[in-house]
Design a protein around this nucleic acid. Structure first.
Lengths: 200, 200
DNA sequence: ATTCCCTGAATGGCCATTCATTCATGTACT
DNA sequence: AGTACATGAATGAATGGCCATTCAGGGAAT
């Protein structure tokens, strides 16, 4: 209990410090101060600095993946699934702003351990999108000439970049719902006015 | 002449080394070795390590922005302009893979100087997309309910993430044209099969 | 008194940056 | 055309600071 508390506290502190300073200029003593523990205490719970970062990834992202997958299982229509994925992702990123920043910044680093995490674990998360698209194609709902792996990148890249609006100074006034709607409007229906007006 | 050569050589070497190792674990001596100069020589051309990174941004990205803007001026139709922007961006990133990686990784770092560059200079580049969209809305070609600033992020995020396919191990077999077409298919026309088939 | 956390000062290694020195080239003088 | 001197680009070993990590000791709980 006590252990779980301190572990969690350090994870939260590290997420915040990494978000603000970036992994490499963040000092262990910054994290310790933020978590209100001694520098040495951190090494009772983590092997080294990288281990802290990887734990942030694994534990925090793990929660998101799990809850997203659970929600998706309740829905059959790929269009709705896409909506759920986008909405969930944006909600998570807004709720945990620091985690969002850490993911956006550090998940791309070309270091062995980070790459490994990205390729082995995180890619499953973005893979969900490709799966949805493949399924939509199978059902004849999505256009068959699209490559699911490219579409997946389009969508994930868009979500990733969009979740930065809450950190940017100016464009802070969007709600999650608004952004989700915009994403789906663009991806499902497209930019052009003719398509959607033919609809209505 | 000699000077220009060495400056350029160091920029190229740094781009490569930063791409492979990331800014923070890249050592000056790595860059020096790659550029085939002495460690000290680098300080005849740059003030410090950050200065090298910023120079990479400014000089290399500067070229891209300039040539993109020139091309866009020759075209009126926002749909075509969007196509040009996407195609140009992807072409540039494929041509200079190391630069692509450095941009994707380092441009997001939360350090003052990098932030400044991003907010003051780089944002002009992504701003081009928002401008195209605004223009398309004015002309009644793009849907008026879309926020140009959100759409801009969608599109840039998608392009950014897509240009990683050339670094990933598996999905390497796409051409720039193929990817451009996919992006436009998704953004302009949307994912759903009904919209595009109503068209044909 | 033993166990279990916890602490934070001290250690050691790494690397950006510096700078005394070398070397190549150019210029001037005979 | 050979000698002497000047310049400044280039070098790379040495310096110094920073910070992750360690560990000897403190103190609370049983």
């Amino acid at each position: 209990m006590k252990v779980e508390n301190k572990h969690t506290k350090i994870i939260a502190a590290a997420t915040k410090v990494f978000a603000k300073k970036g992994f490499f200029t963040a000092r262990i003593s910054d994290i310790a101060k933020e978590a209100k523990v001694a520098d040495g205490t951190i090494y009772l719970y983590f092997n080294n600095k990288y281990d802290i970062l990887l734990s942030v990834f694994e534990e925090e992202v793990g929660k998101i993946v799990e809850s997203t997958e659970k929600l998706l299982r309740l829905e059959d229509d790929p269009r709705r699934q896409l909506e759920i994925f986008c909405s969930q992702h944006l909600h998570s990123m807004k709720k945990n702003r620091y985690l969002a920043e850490v993911l956006q910044i550090e998940l791309r680093q070309p270091y062995k351990l980070i790459k490994e995490y990205r390729d082995n674990t995180f890619s499953k998360y973005t893979g969900i999108i490709a799966e949805i698209i493949r399924n939509g194609q199978r059902l004849g709902l999505f256009r068959p000439e699209l490559h699911p792996d490219l579409a997946k990148r389009c969508i994930f890249g868009a979500l990733d970049e969009l979740s930065r609006v809450w950190n940017a100074s100016l464009e802070t006034n969007y709600t999650v719902e608004e952004i989700t709607n915009q994403v789906l409007a663009i991806f499902l229906i497209g930019l052009e006015v003719t398509r959607s007006s033919e609809e209505g």
